[in-house]
C-alpha cells in the first residue's frame, strides 16, 4: 500500500477520478497494523479502487482537516469528494460492502 503525505494528497486523492480509499493510520496503533494487511488483501482483489495510507503523526494537518477522531479511519473519496467513512479495524468483506464493490 502506498503511503502518501500532505504534498501528494491533492494529486493522489482530490484530483483522482474514481474511487480512492484513504487509510489514516499511525505506527503506534496495533489495529492499524492489522488493517494494513487487510487493505493489502482488499487491494489485490479490487483493482478498481485505489488504496493509499496517511500517517497521522507525519500529517497532523490532514488528520485535523478530515476530522480523524479514531484510527484506523478509512475514508472513501469518489472523484475527489468524501462519500463514506468507517472507523476501526474491519474485514475485507465489510470494506467491500461499504464501498459497494
Amino acid at each position: 500500500m502506498k503511503e502518501i503525505g500532505a504534498k501528494e494528497f491533492e494529486a493522489e486523492v482530490l484530483q483522482e477520478n474514481g474511487l480512492v480509499l484513504v487509510d489514516f493510520n499511525a505506527d503506534w496503533c496495533g489495529p492499524c497494523q492489522m488493517m494494513k494487511s487487510v487493505l493489502e488483501e482488499f487491494a489485490e482483489k479490487n483493482n478498481t479502487v485505489k488504496v493509499v495510507g496517511v500517517n497521522i503523526d507525519d500529517n497532523e494537518d490532514l488528520a485535523r482537516e478530515y476530522n480523524v477522531s479514531g484510527i484506523p479511519c478509512m475514508v472513501l473519496f469518489s472523484d475527489g469528494k468524501e462519500t463514506k467513512r468507517v472507523v476501526g479495524v474491519q474485514s475485507v468483506k465489510k470494506i467491500e460492502r461499504m464501498i459497494g464493490v
Binding site: W28, C29, G30, P31, Q33, M34, M35, V38, V89, S91
Partner: peptide, 11 residues
C-alpha cells in the same frame, strides 16, 4: 470483526 482478537490492540 477481524481475526486477531483483543490482543491486536497491544503494541
Amino acid at each position: 470483526n477481524i481475526h486477531g482478537g483483543q490482543i491486536i490492540n497491544t503494541i
